[in-house]
Amino acid sequence: MIMTEDIRSIAGKTAIVTGAASGMGCATARLFAQQGAKVALTDLDQAACDRAAEAIRAEGARGEVLPLAFNVADHEAIRRVIAEVANRLGGIDIIVNNAGIVGFASIDDPENYEKQWQRCIDVMITPHQRIIREALPHLRRSEAARIVNIASTEGLGATPGDSPYVAVKHAVVGLTRALAVDLGPEGITVNCICPGAIHTGMTDDIPDGKKETFARRRVALRRYGRPEEVAQMTLSLVLPAASYLTGAVIPVDGGLTIRNA
């Protein structure tokens, strides 16, 4: 491959980002649009999608932003949205499976545990494969098809009381590796990012003091990360230049997973 300027750019590419009304998803949609990509910004609530899209446009996005609300747990909604994005934005080149929920549940609380287990599966693993499968006809027509699944450092280890979430994030890592093998012969790359402690809506309820203590004790960089820092890694993985990177599982965690004590 000749290294030309255009292979370091996603301008003109079409991307779908789930869970993009806030947090890491919104930061990713913003960065992609700033880079000139056409971005389908999706989440559960249309008003939240509209607000996020308007804010991105107001910041001077070079690419089109299409806000679309749908529930990733709804298979029919996935089919509808994939078709609409391909029709309105002209194909699909990039999928970022980012939508997520909190999954804490005690193994000794059978009712809540079963509920959380099923919710985690319904939101954070089954939709990933469905979105990818529905988008495959379009990805196969792309010159640089890229899939990025957002897992977690919980997909590399475990936290007490979090087994539904942990199990599903391990499954995301497994799905990434398996599909990288399946789709590799077609040049479609599939990679996975495992964010660590990041300032998002999921961590808003943690008191600042506890965040600071955790970061000092567990994170090599001694701080929580920002959604924009995860988005930058996602951008790197979807560039046309990233053509020989697939099946990678990349922690973006400030060194959380490398510390022994």
Rank of each mutant, 00 (worst) to 15 (best):
A86K: 11
H138C: 12
C49Y: 08
G161F: 14
V190P: 10
A231V: 08
D50I: 04
C194M: 01
I132H: 00
E59P: 06
G157S: 11
S243D: 12
D253A: 00
E114Q: 14
P137W: 13
F214V: 05
R62K: 15
N260G: 14
I131Q: 05
I147W: 06
I206R: 07
G91A: 06
P240F: 01
I10F: 00
R130G: 03
A231D: 09
E76R: 12
Y165V: 11
A83D: 13
V172Q: 04
Y244C: 03
A69V: 07
A52D: 14
P227S: 08
C194W: 09
N97P: 04
R226L: 13
Q129A: 05
I131P: 02
R259H: 10
T200Q: 11
F32K: 00
K115A: 14
L179D: 05
V252T: 11
R79Y: 05
G90A: 07
G187P: 06
H199A: 13
E111F: 08
G91W: 02
G90K: 03
L221N: 11
E114R: 15
F214H: 08
H128Y: 13
R177T: 02
K169E: 04
A83Y: 03
G63V: 07
R62I: 05
I2M: 10
G196T: 10
V219F: 06
A158Q: 05
E5T: 07
G36T: 01
G155C: 03
I7Q: 02
R51S: 12
R141A: 12
I56S: 09
A52Y: 12
N260R: 14
G157D: 07
Y224P: 10
M202S: 13
G100C: 09
V238P: 04
H199S: 11
S163N: 11
D43E: 14
G90E: 04
I206N: 07
A27I: 06
A86S: 15
G209M: 01
L31I: 00
N112C: 08
C49N: 14
A145T: 00
A135M: 07
Q232K: 14
A86L: 10
L175A: 01
I258G: 00
A69M: 09
S9W: 02
Y224L: 14
R141G: 11
E154R: 04
L44E: 05
Q232N: 13
A99P: 00
A48P: 02
T4R: 15
P207R: 03
P164W: 10
N98I: 08
L237F: 11
C49M: 08
R226T: 06
A55H: 13
L156Y: 03
I121Y: 13
I56F: 10
G157V: 00
A48G: 05
Q116L: 15
R79G: 15
